[in-house]
Amino acid sequence: MITKEDVQHIAHLARIELTPEEEERFQHDLSAILQFVEQLNQVDTTGIEPMTGGTHLEQITRMDAQINTDLEHRSAGLIEATSEKRGQMVSVKSVFE
């Protein structure tokens, strides 16, 4: 099933730092859940189209036009919600080392 290295790899992809205790716990939990979902393999799904959404709607299109969804200039609120900012810009750690 899931090894500790798998857990570390997944945690890296998911951008979640784990403690050694969490690594152990999630190795156990994820293995148990994967074993539980294993029963899906009992179902013959040959030729079954995957159901990818919650509706029966397909390929709804709209006019290729700009829509103003910024109701009453709410974008300022989005900047406000960020952790660090300078004026109207979001500040982050440097991307290149």
Binding site: A11, A14, I16
Partner: peptide
């Protein structure tokens, strides 16, 4: 939350996508 994010990250990762995610969506159709 961590448990589900990690499980989902695993299910969607290269090599496992069809075995888990596509399979689950086919069963969803059934």
């Amino acid at each position: 939350i961590k448990r589900r994010i990690m499980l989902g990250t695993y299910a969607l990762s290269a090599g496992y996508y069809d075995a888990y995610y596509t399979k689950a969506q086919q069963v969803r159709r059934l």
